[in-house]
């Protein structure tokens, strides 16, 4: 079997991190079969791994860094703490007096609670959209860079060529077999979202996965600049969970000079899924690419809001059967 050392080493490394998909496992198995050289190479990696894990002689225990400060530093620190505490007490006393004076006036203003909720909610919503929007482009920068440099391996992503389009894919990196009672839709693999990041103040949580980046600089001549995309979403069951907002986002990016990438258009299709782990829900979108699109970024987003967002770590979120078709191809 023909497999480069780089490919082989990548598979072994993934196997040692328990990060190997079923298809990669098959590839590694067939590479090892009747190949004494690769078997020797494999055994070397394993031996290093086990020695590093087993032996304290190889990796010395990390000693905590204890810094002995001179006495005057300790004394001045204690003095600083005392000044801070006194200032805090003094300010508190001042504030309490003012509050007592204004208490009656505040209690007669029923509008106050409405004002405060507006102040709280509006910027949070705006900020959340801004964060998602920024992350889609930010997340894809590394992959775009990989595509333009022609790197074959970075951050677990793979460089691929299909129907005349070259693209970077993280499908394999994020793929998993059946877990948490959720079965893949057709074959044995599906995409697993990373754990959601949670904003406890706004009670929102989200996970964004930039799954593919297509190079459209050198696309086939008959391509008509229209992309149809579809994907299915699902989530594991949780007694604390409810509906999750999933979206399939397509982002058109223009490469200005010197790796300065800007967004020139986007399309996002949102779906609110149920809490039933046995059903997959499909979302479709069509995107007409704007003039000057050099890269097409495909991202999957899962979001939750409200109290269930705080328990989002109790659930897993999945996507499967991501399909892109390019008009004219």
């Amino acid at each position: 079997m023909n497999i480069s050392n780089t490919e082989f080493d990548t598979l072994v490394s993934k196997a040692l991190d328990s990060n190997l998909s079923a298809s990669e496992n098959e590839l590694l198995t067939s590479a090892l079969k009747d190949e004494p050289n690769l078997q020797r190479r494999y055994c070397n990696f394993i031996l290093h791994e086990s020695l590093l894990h087993w032996e304290s002689e190889v990796i010395p225990e990390e000693e905590p860094n204890v810094i002995m400060f001179p006495f005057w530093v300790l004394l001045s620190s204690a003095a600083a703490v005392f000044v801070c505490l006194f200032s805090a007490w003094f300010l508190h006393q001042e504030y309490s007096l003012n509050v007592e004076e204004e208490q009656f006036a505040i209690n007669t203003l029923p509008v106050q609670s409405v004002q405060s909720s507006e102040i709280f909610s509006q910027p949070v919503a705006a900020m959340s959209n801004e964060v998602v929007h920024k992350s889609l482009l930010d997340d894809s920068l590394e992959l775009i860079q990989m595509l333009s440099d022609g790197d074959s391996y970075i951050d677990g992503a793979s460089l691929m060529l299909r129907n005349g389009f070259s693209f970077v894919s993280r499908d394999h990196q994020l793929s998993t077999s059946s877990i948490d009672g959720v079965l893949p839709l057709n074959d044995t693999q599906m995409i697993l979202f990373r754990e959601m990041s949670v904003d406890t103040i706004s009670q929102r949580s989200e996970a964004i996965e930039t799954i593919r980046v297509y190079d459209l600089k050198n696309h086939p001549s008959n391509f008509e600049n229209i992309v149809d995309a579809s994907v299915c979403f699902n989530q594991s069951h949780s007694d604390f969970g409810d509906s999750t907002e999933f979206s399939l986002s397509l982002l058109a990016v223009n490469d200005l000079e010197e790796n300065n990438f800007v967004e020139v258009g986007s399309s996002s299709q949102v779906l609110n899924s149920d809490n039933d782990h046995s059903t997959w829900e499909r979302v479709d979108t069509t995107f007409i690419l704007p003039e000057g699109t050099d890269y097409l970024v495909v991202s999957l987003v899962a979001k939750k809001s409200g109290p269930s967002a705080l328990n989002s770590n109790l659930q897993s979120f999945f996507a499967d059967e991501l399909e892109l078709s390019f008009a004219g191809i």
């Binding site: 990548t10 490394s13 040692l16 970075i154 951050d155 993280r170 990196q173």
Partner: peptide, 8 residues
């Protein structure tokens, strides 16, 4: 992903 490629 970065950790995975660093370990590699």
């Amino acid at each position: 992903g970065a950790i995975s490629s660093t370990l590699y």
